[in-house]
Amino acid sequence: MSGKELKCATSSKGEKKNQTNREKLQKRIAKAQQQGRCNKVKALEYLLRNSERKSLTENK
């Protein structure tokens, strides 16, 4: 395998992990909204936004 192929193989694993983490956060946000926990929703949305930014900068 060349360096590019290896990087692509490892980045897809990282992307899958990031996707599952985002899905878990989204489920937690939905649950907090149903319970009426506004501050928890804000905190989780902050984590979600920043995790997406971090994953975008790592994949470049």
Rank of each mutant, 00 (worst) to 15 (best):
S2D: 14
E5T: 01
G36I: 01
K31A: 11
K24M: 06
K54I: 12
E5N: 04
L48K: 02
G3D: 13
K4R: 15
Y46I: 09
N21Q: 13
G14N: 08
K27W: 03
L47N: 11
N50F: 08
R22Q: 10
R28G: 15
E15A: 05
K24T: 14
T10R: 07
N59E: 12
R53Y: 07
N59Y: 12
Q34E: 14
Q35G: 09
A32E: 04
G3F: 12
R49W: 12
S2I: 08
L6W: 09
R22Y: 05
A30G: 12
S2A: 14
V41A: 05
M1G: 07
K24I: 10
K4L: 12
K13W: 00
R49S: 05
S55G: 11
K16P: 05
G36S: 04
K24N: 12
K4N: 08
Y46Q: 15
K13G: 02
A9F: 04
E52P: 13
K7V: 13
R28T: 15
K17S: 02
S11T: 12
S12E: 00
N18Y: 03
L48V: 10
R28V: 08
R37V: 10
L47Y: 15
G3V: 10
T20E: 01
Q35H: 09
N59M: 13
S2T: 08
R49M: 11
L48F: 03
L47D: 14
T20P: 00
N18K: 03
L25C: 06
E23H: 01
K42T: 10
K16Y: 01
I29G: 04
C8N: 15
A30E: 10
E15P: 01
S55D: 02
I29A: 14
K31S: 13
S12Q: 03
Y46R: 14
Q19R: 02
L6A: 15
E52Q: 12
K42C: 08
K7T: 09
C8P: 14
Q26Y: 06
C8Y: 09
Q33D: 12
A32L: 03
S51G: 10
K17R: 07
E15Q: 06
S51E: 10
E23A: 03
K17F: 00
M1E: 06
G36P: 02
L6S: 08
T20C: 01
L44R: 01
R22L: 13
Q35T: 14
L6Q: 11
A30P: 15
E5M: 01
G36R: 00
Q34S: 15
G14I: 03
S51N: 13
K31P: 06
K54E: 13
A9D: 03
A30N: 15
E58W: 07
Q34L: 07
Q33M: 14
R28K: 13
T10S: 04
R28Q: 09
L6T: 14
A30K: 14
I29F: 07
E23L: 00
